[in-house]
């Protein structure tokens, strides 16, 4: 182990890890917004909307995230979409994780007992009101864990944008392995930084889940 090398590269890698964090947060925000929309489509009364939601989920889950990134970044200009690598990466990752998160949201809503909707409707609440005041507050607790699993997968998935030269953690690792020929030292530093993010997030999700889902 080349300890001196590790000491030298840590600052650069921390900087790169910060880019990974930014990328994760942006994709997460976009992913959640799109996921909420897709879940609404999936739960709609209108067959055409339900189909559109199902098609979104099926296409984005049925093809590799890597190709989705390439299609947007390399193929985008052909259809008039010019994006820099970071934006293309964040958008593609967000649209991809949205398909998985939509299923987590839908699963949460469907696991709330049907009697809850009936009781709300029998009091005179409309469909939307029942959803908002009765079903969703209960479903939200059931979504914490699955959405957390999605978010952890997203953090690890951000490594894919290394392939379009976004200077995040994995890209930096690849470059340094190529220039130093010390794969194990580089892996050690990179792995520690990823694991802080991944297991930190896992811990946070655990605590949220215990705090909110426990009482229901």
């Amino acid at each position: 182990m080349d300890i001196a090398l590790i000491g030298r590269i840590v600052p650069v890698f921390v900087q790169a890890a910060w880019t990974t964090v930014e990328l994760s947060l942006l994709s997460l925000a976009l992913g959640l917004a799109v996921a909420a929309l897709v879940a609404m489509l999936r739960l709609s009364h209108v067959a055409a909307l339900r189909f559109a939601g199902a098609a979104y989920v099926s296409v984005f889950r049925g093809t590799p995230a890597l190709i989705q990134i390439f299609l947007l970044y390399f193929g985008g200009p052909q259809v008039g979409i010019q994006l820099d690598p970071f934006a293309a990466g964040a958008i593609a990752l967000g649209l991809n994780i949205a398909a998985y998160m939509a299923e987590s949201i839908r699963g949460g809503v469907l696991s709330v007992d049907r009697g809850q909707m009936e009781a709300a409707r029998s009091l005179g609440f409309g469909e939307g009101q029942s959803m908002r005041w009765i079903v969703l507050p209960q479903a939200a607790k059931l979504m914490i864990r699955p959405l957390g699993v999605n978010a952890v997968a997203l953090v690890k998935g951000t490594a894919l944008v290394a392939t379009i030269s976004v200077v995040e953690l994995t890209y930096t690792a690849q470059r340094f392995i190529g220039s130093t020929y010390k794969p194990f030292e580089i892996f050690a530093v990179t792995a520690v930084l990823y694991m802080i993010m991944v297991y930190g997030l896992t811990l946070l999700v655990d605590r949220l889940d215990r705090a909110y889902a426990g009482e229901a």
Binding site: D113, G115, Q116, E118, A119, A120, S122, I134, P137, Q138, K141, A216
Partner: peptide
């Protein structure tokens, strides 16, 4: 209702 359907939250 048979199963009360109180709102648990």
């Amino acid at each position: 209702f048979q199963h009360f359907n109180l709102f648990p939250h």
